[in-house]
């Protein structure tokens, strides 16, 4: 058991190492430079700026410097375009915002998606089924850059106490969390419906039915546990995505989260910020998968021997 965990952790470290190495070289292969400006920077100034960030060095030298800095000093480096701002500052200021937004929207997604999917499965091929699915699927059939502004105008502009955008009071969390939650509600509803249908047609449920147990009890006591497995499995990877922010939602609702940095760092060629963000995100994914695997092992004794 411990050997298994250790080997998984080892795999995770190697994955992160490969990830950061790939990212390091990929970002430097991009066209353009961190110093591209509408108003051209004079040659001699450019030289000094590159010396300051170390980007004047050959790429292998840069790479080993970066690794050394990362491993020895646990330092992700500084921003290139913003003198004196650290990558770790950007992440530590924006991640809590994305985390709280992600948690709230995943709760909303669960509250809408799971009941809609379960009810749809129980009332399969009836009007209720279609109604539930239709409501749940609005989130993916209309893009978030449509739902977001629509909600902002419909709710934010008409209700005085809900701001159309910003991040200064808890009431500001509602609209972005709802928009983000709707997308995932659609996935959850569809998955829950499929999973529930699989379980409801299994023999032990039929047996329970035949014995005359009331159907709501069957659903709640017997079917839910198995039927929600696909939906719950989906939450894992989706969660890593949601708490690392969403560019579209953040720009529509002016949320100071992490998602915009993923996009802006790439378009601004902020090499160290991209690397830092990728490492952080990779850490989340590897961690989430590790936890999922461990949970699976803990739940399923047969796997423990393997």
């Amino acid at each position: 058991m411990i050997r298994l965990i250790l080997s998984r952790i080892g795999q995770g470290v190697i994955t992160l190492f490969v990830l950061i190495t790939l990212t390091f070289f990929l970002v430097r292969a991009m066209p353009g430079s961190p110093y591209a400006e509408e108003k051209a920077i004079p040659e001699h100034a450019l030289k000094r700026m590159k010396e300051y960030t170390g980007l004047d060095q050959p790429i292998p030298v840069q790479y080993f410097r970066y690794l050394k800095n990362l491993i020895v000093h646990q330092d992700l480096g500084d921003l290139i375009k913003k003198d004196g701002v650290k990558v770790s500052e950007v992440i530590s200021q924006s991640f809590p915002v994305s985390l709280s937004l992600g948690l709230l929207s995943i709760s909303i997604a669960l509250m809408i998606g799971i009941p809609a999917g379960v009810i749809a499965a129980v009332k399969k091929n009836t009007c209720i089924d279609y109604l539930c699915l239709t409501c749940a699927m609005i989130g993916i059939c209309l893009p978030s850059f449509v739902i977001g502004p629509l909600l902002a105008v419909a709710v934010g502009l008409s209700l005085k106490s809900i701001n159309v955008a910003g991040w200064s009071s808890p009431s500001d969390w509602i609209l972005p969390a709802f928009t983000l939650g709707l997308i995932n509600a659609a996935y959850l509803a569809r998955l829950a419906r499929g999973g529930m249908l699989d379980v409801l047609s299994q023999d032990y449920i039929r047996t329970a039915k035949a014995k005359g147990a009331p159907s709501t009890r069957i659903v709640i006591r017997h079917a839910l546990r198995g039927g929600l497995i696909p939906a719950v499995a989906f939450i894992g990877p989706a969660f890593a995505g949601m708490i690392s922010g969403s560019f579209v939602i953040e720009t529509i609702f002016q949320v100071p989260g992490m998602g915009q940095h993923f996009v802006n760092a790439a378009t601004d060629r902020e090499f160290f910020l991209i690397q830092g963000l990728v490492l952080f995100y990779g850490f989340l994914i590897v961690g989430a998968n590790l936890l999922a695997d461990l949970a699976q092992i803990a739940l399923n004794p047969r796997l423990r021997k393997a």
Partner: peptide
Amino acid sequence: FLPIGNLYTESRMFRDGQ
């Protein structure tokens, strides 16, 4: 000073009294 990158968001915030 608010760094609002999306002009549509900015106009909405203005019309909302922000």
